[in-house]
Amino acid sequence: MTRSLRPLLATTLIFLFAYMLAVSQQPAMLSTRVLGNFLTDNAFLGIAAVGMTFVILSGGIDLSVGAVIGFTTVLIAVLIMWLNLHPLIAFAVALIVATAFGAVMGAAIHYLRVPSFIVTLAGMFLARGGASVLSPDSIGIEHPFFTAVQKSYILLPGGGRLTVVGMIMLAVFAVAILLAHRTRFGSNVYALGGSETSAALMGVPVARTTITIYALSSFLAGLAGVVFSLYTSAGYSLNALGVELDAIAAVVIGGTLLTGGYGFVAGTFIGVMLQGLVQTYIVFDGTLSSWWTKIVVGVLLFMFIVLQRLVFRAGPRRT
């Protein structure tokens, strides 16, 4: 078994164990209805975490994700409510703006040779600031298209609802898995995370790949913003505050090495679901308070960081 599979396996086992434990305490959690809500409630986090997975796999970090989500919701609200554009056009504009924003950050990281965290920190300030300059107040979105989308879902056996938002997340994960594991771009991302020097010597276009990675991350953050606006019907500059941390946590808990090079997009899905599980359990329980989510996620994060230290410290095993 490949070494990098071990953290993923651990995550999966922990998730299954935690889910069984949760069900044994709260039998109602074993239903497609809960599962459907799981997907809907965590859709924006999941989509953003996919982008974060690529960034972290390449050895970087993107702190601007939450801010880009917030900015996108405001931009969409402004385009629809103030400029009376059709939501689909608003979505397209928002996605283009977000992607361009990420590409600029990627270019800055590559050409200015500064750590990604400081560039994306500037990006985070800029996106949050830009959003509140557009509109400091929350803008409600009312549009027949929104209502229609929010009302459509696929009925799952057992009464669960797979909403449009949930489907978008599943589709993003499916495409991202192909992108990461079956395309040259995906290989290049892993190569950068393994060793930038080696990657360059082996012919990986470092500049292009870096820019694409951050553009992709911001594009997905923008898509998460679209989903967020569908989910809440509002644009607000302080939406999705701190989501970057949740996304990073989901990626790491999903078995991706924070220093890059090892990991799986599918693991991120489990990481997101594990966070969702903790949240749902706390809601079901009723006596526990919401802050336990953060503590549990922090503990999981710590466990996985230590686990990775142990797994990746070992030397070669075959000859």
Partner: peptide, 25 residues
């Protein structure tokens, strides 16, 4: 020997939860 940015991230994520634990929300 964990990279500082990663090591301190743990407390950044869990710290507010701990604070809320203390104040009980």
């Amino acid at each position: 020997e964990i990279q500082p940015i990663i090591a301190t991230l743990v407390l950044m994520v869990a710290g507010r939860g701990l604070a809320q634990l203390i104040t009980e929300g």
